[in-house]
Write a protein that binds this DNA or RNA. Structure first.
Length: 883
RNA sequence: GCGGGCGUGGCGGAAUGGUAGACGCGGCAGACUCAAAAUCUGCUAUCGCAAGGUGUGUCGGUUCGAGUCCGACCGCCCGCACCA
């Protein structure tokens, strides 16, 4: 074997795998199946280290499962719709489709050299009619099932770009691109009825036992179940049609502390009152407020007394004022509340500002009913003393009091217990070109009608321009024109497109039959679903994963997925980011200046453990030492003083172009090969945590792989019949490695699996065993390394006489008999402190172990004749002597 | 405010309640070399000449035995947030 040259072996093996179609997924009734999926990328045009880490993890799982005898599905596709393509068209000209397809070609070309075991015959892109046409078909099915509807909704409207903006695109109340003040405008929008599934999506979380607890909690909080009382006030002096005002509360036990009612500025009653110019003006003022978290947090609570009154449900003579308040949300509960300032922080603030009554309903046990300086809001599980209760005992917990109050309301017929969810319906309308057209038609006589399925896909027109703001579909000369599927009269197409989250909500199902003429094919979906292991970033913990869970249910309801697939992802793994240090200096004006890693030099000061980073021109050769500093001191003084050449190192941060701490995977592959990149991103940190990319770590990985290569050569040069020493020892090490590496991979502890591979490599290198045993060991090493470093593994496998391709060889099995040593070393503790060590046969009886332990001379010395009170022997583990 | 997570050498990190620091990085020393690089070997938590002592954010508890379990605190990180 010659030198280790990744640039030679990597393309060679990739070609060999392609030729043998090793990664093509086939339905095989004789094998169990395994579906591994990594969250598919947005085709930005460049892959980054995060992609490398994500796809390598999936690849390790896919290759291991394939070797373990599973029929594996490991596909890849492109989340290809979305605004960056349109922005690029606006900024640079060109067409979103050309830009996107070009990026897909480029990114695929960058992914191929990684040697991933992907079935590229199943590649999909959400922007192609083959994909989004099927999405439109499902949209129509969902309409029929009542899962889709239109309603007016308040949205962020950019008056300059003439488009709806997502909340994240509104920065300080202005459009992120146009910088125009964003308006809250009411538009007719399309919605998916995800709220129909609130309860089910919440309860089913319990069954997702192979999901991270954190993700399940985040989803549970997002769905936000609460139980409370809904009741209606009788109104006094309200406009016609508003005889009653419905409110929702989770604290009906505080009803006797009510001092006002309040409605959202978007409440129908507020609208009915807008004939009063003062009210109209107030409502307009409320709508101006920004929607960002900070603004909401710091926003002052403002209110306006409408003059309308409501009667307290427990006492018709008791009237409360109705206010419009900016902090009441229209789309939660009923959009109206009753205010109990004593036991709600917001109501307290509001009541204090507008001098409304603050009356305690309950007080801490043993406390006085004194005026409050802030709202008293104890845990609902805590017992308190009710001074103005109306149901249940005087001393009870909040939980008990709430239940008693609901029972009271239901018994007296003024309200009922209801369950409320924070989760809102999913608004999917986007006034954008580069998305999946919503396949409906507006007809003057028939209204809103679904397009006929045989007319699908409703394709995006190519001849559009982006030189003026707004949705190009709206101003296309002919695209909107169509005929009504019902009455054949001339009609107009819907020009809204779907949120790109819709595209990614079912791609996992499409991969089971990526080119079918229907969204899915029953037998393929039956065979391949569910995704056995899904891998991606934590940033998708809520939206993407919740939408997908909803969509799988909708696909079941519309007959596109089997019942077993309503939870589509059996196991989820969320991986950490790839980070890098940032190198910063300051310019003459005090502004930060960032430097690329290759622009700085590391100077180490030996045992003093100081690391200083300097601009590269101080040590142009790329490395330096403090002793060298003495030599270059004059130069350094010159360099440091006038130009501030010491570089500040900002530890481990997300890779970002502006901070110049990005490492391009293509450069790493060019310098060290894909195997080095793959091994390093898996080796240094647990996969769920961030991993810091370091140049020294990458170099060290390359050196290690080179060592393995050299070791393979050495073994290859040994005479085949050479008899050596320590065969049994190496055989045991081999089987231990099999057991430990397998456990590491299966437990998603890739860093530990790699640590074991280092140990095993060192064991082989030290061994002077017989040629045959060494060969068997290094072939096993190659197979165990192959999920992480498939190319070098393939070379070693072939060189050492492995049969066929390593990629198709079965996973080795550990012999349990070889995993336990005949003798074990037992530490002996005296009063819990380690004092000695004995070596005993592994199955020696505890009684014999005791004898040997007590006879040990170190033990005798430490005991110094003290009587032994207790002796604990944990077989195979430890001996503890208590005196 | 609500919810969750994490604190272990110079660094990344290992440790089913059972020898704390595996493995890697960095560092030190040595071999090879005219020399450097590369490579190889050894050492590397800390105090101490040693015997031995001390060490997993802090304080306390459970246990024969605690990095691990329990309680309080300190610090850092993440998610949600005017949700009635």
């Amino acid at each position: 074997m010659s030198r280790y040259e990744p640039s030679v072996i990597e393309p060679k093996w990739q070609q060999a795998w392609d030729d043998a179609q090793v990664f093509e997924a086939k339905r095989d009734p004789l094998k169990p199946k395994y579906y591994v999926l990594e969250m598919f990328p947005y085709p930005s045009g460049r892959i980054h280290m995060g992609h490398v880490r994500n796809y390598t993890m999936g690849d390790v799982v896919a290759r291991t499962k394939a070797a373990q005898g599973y029929s594996v599905l490991h596909p890849m596709g492109w989340d290809a719709f979305g605004m960056p393509a349109e922005n690029a068209a606006m900024e640079r000209g060109g067409h979103p489709r050309d830009w996107t397809e070009g990026n897909i070609t480029e990114m695929k070309a960058q992914m191929k050299p990684l040697g991933l075991s992907i079935d590229w015959s199943r590649e999909i892109a959400t922007c192609r009619p083959e994909y989004y046409g099927q999405q439109q078909a499902m949209f129509i099915d969902m309409m029929e099932q009542g899962l889709v509807y239109r309603k007016n909704a308040v949205v962020n409207w950019d008056p300059v770009d003439m488009t709806v903006l997502a909340n994240e695109q509104v920065i300080d109340g202005r459009g992120w691109r146009s910088n125009a003040l964003v308006e809250r405008r009411e538009l007719t929008q399309w919605f998916f009825k995800i709220s129909d599934y609130s309860g089910e999506l919440l309860e089913a979380l319990d069954g997702l036992t192979h999901w991270p607890e954190k993700v399940r909690l985040m989803q549970a909080n997002w769905i936000g179940k609460s139980q409370g009382l809904q009741f209606a006030f009788d109104t006094v002096g309200a406009p016609a049609g508003f005889d009653r005002l419905k409110v929702y509360t989770t604290r009906p036990d505080t009803l006797m502390g009510a001092s006002f009612a309040a409605i959202s500025p978007d409440h129908p009653l507020a609208k009915a009152l807008e004939s009063d110019p003062k009210i109209a003006e107030f409502v307009a003022r409320c709508r101006k407020g920004g929607t960002s978290a900070e603004e909401i947090e710091t926003a002052e609570k403002i209110g306006f007394d409408t003059g309308v009154r409501v009667k307290h449900p427990l006492n018709p003579d008791w009237e409360l004022p109705v206010w419009i308040a900016n902090f009441i949300l229209m789309d939660y509960g009923t959009g109206a509340i009753f205010g109990c300032p004593a036991h709600d922080a917001r109501d307290f603030e509001f009541a204090t500002k507008y001098r409304l009554d603050i009356k305690s309903v309950f007080i801490a046990e043993g406390a006085e009913d004194a005026p409050l300086t802030e709202a008293f809001v104890p845990m609902k599980s805590e017992p308190v003393h009710y001074v103005r209760g109306f149901s249940g005992a005087a001393v009870q917990t909040g939980d008990a009091a709430v239940a008693a109050a609901i029972a009271h309301a239901e018994a007296h017929g003024y309200g009922k217990g209801v369950t409320n969810y924070r989760l809102r319906d999913w608004g999917i309308s986007r006034q954008r070109y580069w998305g999946c057209p919503i396949p409906v038609i507006h007809c003057e006589s028939c209204g809103v009608v679904a397009e006929k399925k045989e007319n699908l896909p409703v394709e995006l027109p190519y001849d559009v321009t982006f030189d003026i703001p707004g949705n190009p579909l709206d101003r296309h000369p002919t695209w909107r024109n169509c005929t009504c599927p019902n009455c054949n009269a001339p009609a107009r197409r819907e020009t809204d497109t779907m949120d790109t989250f819709v595209d990614s909500s079912w791609y996992y199902a499409r991969f089971t039959a990526p080119h079918a003429k229907t969204p899915t094919v029953a037998e393929d979906a039956d065979y391949w679903m569910n995704v056995d292991q899904y891998i991606g970033g934590i940033e998708h913990a809520i939206l993407h994963l919740l939408y997908s869970r909803f969509f799988a249910r909708a696909m079941f309801k519309t007959g596109h997925l089997p019942a077993k697939a309503i939870e589509p992802f059996n196991a989820l793994f969320t991986q950490g980011m790839v980070t890098h240090e940032i190198y910063k200096t300051t310019d003459a004006n005090g502004r930060p200046v960032y430097h690329l890693p290759e622009e700085v030099t590391f100077v180490t000061a030996g045992s003093e453990k100081i690391r200083t980073v300097l601009w590269k021109d101080v040590f142009p050769e790329g490395r330096g030492n403090l002793s060298d500093l003495e030599v270059v001191k004059p130069l350094l003084d010159y360099a440091v003083k006038p130009t501030n050449r010491f570089v500040e190192v900002i530890p481990s941060a997300k890779m970002s172009k502006s901070k110049k701490n990005v490492v391009d995977p293509m450069n790493i592959i060019a310098a060290f090969g894909a195997d080095t990149a793959r091994w390093f991103v898996m080796s240094d940190s647990p996969p769920e945590r961030d991993v810091e990319w370091t140049a020294s770590g990458a170099e060290a990985t390359f050196k290690h792989l080179s060592r393995v290569w050299a070791l393979c050569s050495r073994i290859g040069e040994m005479p085949a019949d050479h008899k050596g020493e320590g065969d049994d020892e190496l055989l045991r090490a081999t089987h231990k490695a099999i057991a430990e590496v397998t456990a590491g991979i299966e437990g998603f502890a890739f860093n530990k699996a790699i640590a074991k591979l280092y140990e095993f490599t060192n064991a082989i290198a030290r061994s002077s065993a017989s040629t045959q045993v060494l060969q068997e060991a290094i072939r096993t090493l190659a197979k165990l390394m192959s999920p992480m470093t498939p190319h070098i593994a393939e070379s070693i496998w072939t060189f050492q006489g492995g049969e066929g391709l390593c990629a198709q060889a079965p996973w080795p099995k550990a012999d349990p008999a070889l995993l336990v040593d005949d003798t074990v070393t037992l530490p002996i503790q005296i009063n819990g402190k380690r004092r000695a060590e004995i070596s005993v046969p592994k199955d020696m009886s505890p009684a014999d172990v005791e004898k040997i332990a007590l006879a040990n001379e170190d033990v005798v010395r430490f005991l110094a004749g003290q009587p032994v009170k207790k002796l604990i022997v944990v077989p195979g583990r430890i001996v503890n002597v208590v005196v």
